[in-house]
Design a protein around this nucleic acid. Structure first.
Lengths: 252, 252
DNA sequence: CTTCAAATATCATTGAGTGAGATTGATGGC
DNA sequence: GCCATCAATCTCACTCAATGATATTTGAAG
């Protein structure tokens, strides 16, 4: 483990249960010496990734600034922005945009529709890998070996039924979604909420993420699901086309 | 300059003009060797702070996740949340919350009021140090030596008039705001927008940040400024009290 | 398959990083 | 102001991780 990664792993200590940490917390949990711990913390503070706070250290303002840069200027978000907005308008729904990164699925954007909805899985909140339409619209389109790896590495996220039935069964179930081209989930992420999701693909044809329409059960039950799905698939196709055609030079 | 800081300074290369960088860009601008540049980039990618994208590297998903943690669990934001929300309601205004960090002032939260407003200085966007009520409500309450340091280090942010008149004059002008306890600025940040801002103090009585009511000119001209100022000062006093009384154990 | 750009490996060198222990600085209570 | 305590930094001997010139491999596109 390099000094660089040791330092950066301090960031992974911060979580919902520990938004504020003392250096003692940090050096104990990482098993670093005190001077080394202080050095790393000092560097992270200088870079703005941590900040000195009452009672310890917290995540720093530079993160907020970098996130602003992502929201406003990230190449993927920039180029899909118009399609996502159009979808929120045409489907009259909240739209959640997911990205796939190694073993993680992250909400990278939330676009509110005409009737704003409070969504538990807000932008940046860690997504379950196997639960909910947004994630399943991604995992369903992974190459089998990669899915197998995820399945093995993240058994803690599986239900006991999924674990018992094993990977082959899990994979077969996802194939049905893959064939349909979209996934619907009801109450899997937020009680009383329904998600309809479809994947977005990269330039190299691998799945890059997904778009998900989020709505209440009541809305879903009175909706024309086919129309919603159609608008969703139009949007994901548009984004896939944009991501495929683009070159950096396209960025203004 | 340590290897740690050299690696972290790569993050500073990303900006509005360059949301996407190749390793060549990075090693040229930082003057690192190719293997070193790739090593640093690989570490940042492993930590999720950068991500491989078409045409180069972009800021990574971990930043979005960390920002979620800040929005939801940061100690300062958590403890000021209720007061900020109440202010947005009672003033029927968008409220912008600033934090002061070393030489930077950062919008750490934006609370929309009943009539949502598009604010140019969105959460995380770099704030001018000396322009606009949100910043001036902070700089006005800085100890004189610290303000002098800011003035010297950030001459590029001064108007030529401010530069000519010098620091003493600049300081004296800010003293008037300090005496009033709040600052009003019209069109300094966003054309057609007015800001009314007041400072928030830390446990050790140093200025920690500010709260700012943001509204259109038309709204301001038809408003009872005294009532707005009063509600603002009530809120900043409440937050100051909360920040002064708290202990980590207060966090739930 | 070929070409080229992106990324990684090799390896000699050295100085940056490390941690045990000592010292300093800051804060709060009396 | 003094004292105790905790937070943070410094010293220094040692070592091994980091570095960069150069070579090699990998991946993508045509």
């Amino acid at each position: 483990m390099t000094g660089l990664s040791r330092m950066l792993s301090i960031l992974d200590l911060f979580g919902e249960a520990s938004p504020l940490l003392t250096v003692d917390d940090i050096i104990t949990r990482c098993n670093y010496s005190r001077p080394t711990g202080y050095r790393y913390v000092r560097e992270l503070v200088s870079a703005g990734l941590l900040v000195r706070a009452d009672g310890g250290y917290a995540l720093g303002p530079r993160i907020i600034e970098l996130d602003w840069l992502i929201r406003r200027h990230d190449p993927v978000l920039t180029r899909s922005r118009e399609a996502v907005r159009a979808l929120a308008r045409r489907a009259a729904c909240t739209v959640s945009q997911m990205g796939l990164y190694a073993d993680r699925i992250v909400t990278i954007h939330l676009e509110q529709g005409p009737e704003p909805l409070v969504v538990g899985f807000d932008r940046g909140r860690p997504m379950p890998l196997f639960r909910g339409a947004p994630s399943r619209a991604i995992t369903a389109f992974l190459p089998r070996p990669r899915l197998a790896r995820l399945f093995d590495r993240h058994r803690d996220e599986l239900t006991s039924a999924q674990r018992e039935r094993g990977f082959d069964h899990f994979h077969d179930e996802l194939q049905a979604s893959r064939k349909a081209g979209y996934v619907i989930s009801r109450g899997e992420l937020d009680p009383g909420k329904v998600g309809i999701a479809a994947p977005v693909f990269r330039h190299d044809r691998t799945v890059a993420g997904s778009l998900c329409l989020v709505m209440t059960e009541a809305r879903y039950e009175t909706a024309n699901a086919e129309a919603l799905v159609q608008r969703l698939l139009d949007a994901t196709a548009a984004i896939t086309a944009v991501l495929r055609s683009g070159r950096p030079a396209d960025l203004v």
